[in-house]
Simulated scan of single mutants.
Amino acid sequence: MGSKNKLKRFRENETFSNVIQPTREEVLNGFLLKGKWHTHFNNNNPIILELGCGKGEYTIALARKNPNINYIGVDIKGARFWRGAKIALEENLSNVAFLRTQIELIDLLFGENEVSEIWITFPDPQIKYTRTKHRLTNADFLSKYNTILKPNGIVNLKTDSEFMHGYTLGLLHGAGHEVLYAHHDIYKNYESPKEVTSTQTFYESQYLEKGKPITYIQFRIKQ
């Protein structure tokens, strides 16, 4: 994407009512919507996050299917989720928002027990050992998720990375978290949850065309 295109999208994001872009200072000094996200949506419906939402395809697809649930796509790359934000506005999806921020700040952006469910879709597996701290399912991130999730809140990890799948599964079992479902190739397992196989990102469909297996884990974090 050219720099002019990015700048144009950044400018448009600033005009979108469904895009929230706090500065780092605003987050660190007390984010105004923390614990009060119901005021943005004007309802008390459950809140579900998609972390590293990219273009927002998953966020949009889930929001279309579940109008009584609020969805927030979270990503630091606003030029990417611009597309999802634009589609949501065009389709009058009032249950969609996009939050431009670093995911490591997630516990400063949402209040305790404010989130019902988290989706992590095709994250960078950060395979190098030196990148362990950036893996979205490491122990530190799970601790942050646990802070904002309601009791019995669910986390979903969908990835094409066998490494990420194995790493996460091993960590979950080792720490005593509750694994509700796990499979290394969900499209070849007839018992896979329908909402997992019926929603695909652009890149996911490409992986499937190449015969690459898609893995999935659903789990609860030990309180």
Score class of each variant (00 low, 15 high):
F163T: 06
H134L: 15
H184K: 11
R131P: 12
R64F: 01
D75I: 05
S94F: 07
K65L: 06
L108I: 06
R64C: 02
K128W: 10
Y216F: 13
I127H: 10
P213G: 09
Y181R: 10
H40F: 13
N5Q: 12
F122W: 14
T199V: 11
N113A: 02
P151Q: 08
E195I: 06
H38P: 06
R64L: 03
D124G: 13
L136N: 04
L89P: 03
K144L: 14
A139P: 01
K222S: 05
F122K: 09
V19I: 09
G54S: 02
T147G: 12
I186K: 10
L32S: 13
K194W: 15
R220M: 12
E117G: 01
L149E: 01
E117D: 01
L62S: 02
N70E: 04
D185R: 00
I60Q: 03
W37D: 02
Y145P: 00
E25P: 09
I103C: 06
T159E: 08
E112H: 14
A63R: 00
D124M: 15
G52H: 05
A182S: 11
W119V: 04
G211D: 07
V74W: 02
I127R: 10
S17L: 05
V155T: 04
E50D: 09
L208R: 10
S198K: 09
F202V: 07
G52I: 06
K86F: 06
E26G: 05
K133H: 13
Y216T: 01
I127E: 11
D107Y: 10
A63M: 01
T159F: 14
F202I: 06
S198L: 07
F219M: 05
G54M: 09
L208D: 09
E191V: 09
E191N: 12
Q223C: 05
E195W: 13
A79Q: 12
L32H: 15
K65V: 02
P46M: 03
T147Q: 15
V74C: 02
K4Q: 13
N18S: 02
Y187Q: 07
T59V: 12
F219Y: 13
F31K: 02
